[in-house]
Design a protein around this nucleic acid. Structure first.
Lengths: 185, 185
DNA sequence: CCGTCATGAGACACGCATGTCTCATGACGG
DNA sequence: CCGTCATGAGACATGCGTGTCTCATGACGG
């Protein structure tokens, strides 16, 4: 019974992250259950999407909480966040893919993004990160890089480790060749 | 007649960039035309989407061609690309939002992304960009940053100038505070 | 004025996704 | 064995989006 529910949520997350408009019938197939069964567990499409969002967010939030971000300098915390997202973010990807933010509780979304914002703000305050860009702006760019990297792992274009390395390299240090900069400076 | 067609394409680009599943009736309303008129110009939803993609790609490709990228060092060319996308990419955003890549000619998509790949590859070769990441990977991160910045302009969260500045700062030089690095080094 | 063309409104057909429900079946526990 | 529960398959209803088409109207040029 719980196993069926979990199978449905897993299948929904897999399909909805790549195709937000995947049909209920497809999700039921992917889960290996009948359509009627899916509706018995999730009476509407919306409740299924909310279920996926809750699980996806809970997983990422739990992983952040276990990550001890507050005990690390901001750049190290950013590295940890990146690794966590690449390893635990598969269901969260479905949340990203959902076109309508109303499908998940705004408070929940805040819980998922708050650690990122806090680390970015702390980094700016502590002088670890540049302070010529607003924290909110920097958070948005961080999210963009993370999300793209996450989808590259989901599409099997990269391992989580590769994606972590790439996202960190670009977000923290940028594309410019530091050796070239040193030569000029 | 041509004015109607253009109005439809403009409206479609506006709606489809934010909501790829916007209904034809909505697009017709947004364009200020009847639904039957829309179908007279674009006989299927797919042909409308293809029309939007063609226009969006043509605009960005034309802007890249006019930008003289080859005459600039890679980092300056990246800056120029970024500015061009922020100013000319509104319709191209609808291409990005389309979930199915089949809706536009792969050759066209190549035309739009080729300048970015070439500049990245050139930058790595010339030592302007770091060479510890593959060119393809760096291109993907560049695209992620550009696309997010573009959507921030479309959503009126930033001006094209602000978005250009932010995207460049993060992509080229990263979030790390160079002063802090210097202190340690 | 007439003919042509582009257009809007509205009606219709169709397919598909969502949601609802029934019936039969299998698994399980008492 | 019987009762209960979870489930799958299938049928049905509904709504909505896509596509098709007709008719009336207005604009324009000859």
């Amino acid at each position: 019974m719980q196993r069926t529910r979990t199978a449905i949520l897993d299948a929904a997350a897999r399909l909805l992250s790549c195709r937000p408009d995947a049909a209920i019938a497809e999700i039921a197939d992917e889960a290996g259950v009948g359509r009627a069964t899916l509706y018995r567990h999730f009476p509407t499409r919306e409740s299924l999407q909310q279920g996926v969002a809750e699980v996806g967010i809970a997983e990422i939030v739990d992983a952040f909480e276990a990550a001890g971000l507050d005990e690390l300098p901001a750049d190290r915390a950013i590295a940890r966040i990146t690794a966590v997202v690449m390893r635990n973010g598969a269901k969260y990807a479905a949340v990203i893919s959902q076109t309508s933010a109303e499908l998940c509780d705004p408070a929940d979304l805040d819980r998922a993004t708050k650690p990122l914002r806090e680390v970015v703000d702390r980094g700016i305050r502590d002088g670890v990160l540049r302070d010529d860009l607003r924290g909110e702006t920097m958070f948005m760019m961080f999210a963009a890089v993370l999300e793209r990297a996450l989808f590259l792992t989901i599409g099997d274009q990269m391992t989580p480790e590769e994606a972590t390395e790439v996202a960190l390299a670009i977000f923290l240090d940028g594309a410019r060749n530091p050796v070239a900069t040193r030569r000029i400076g």
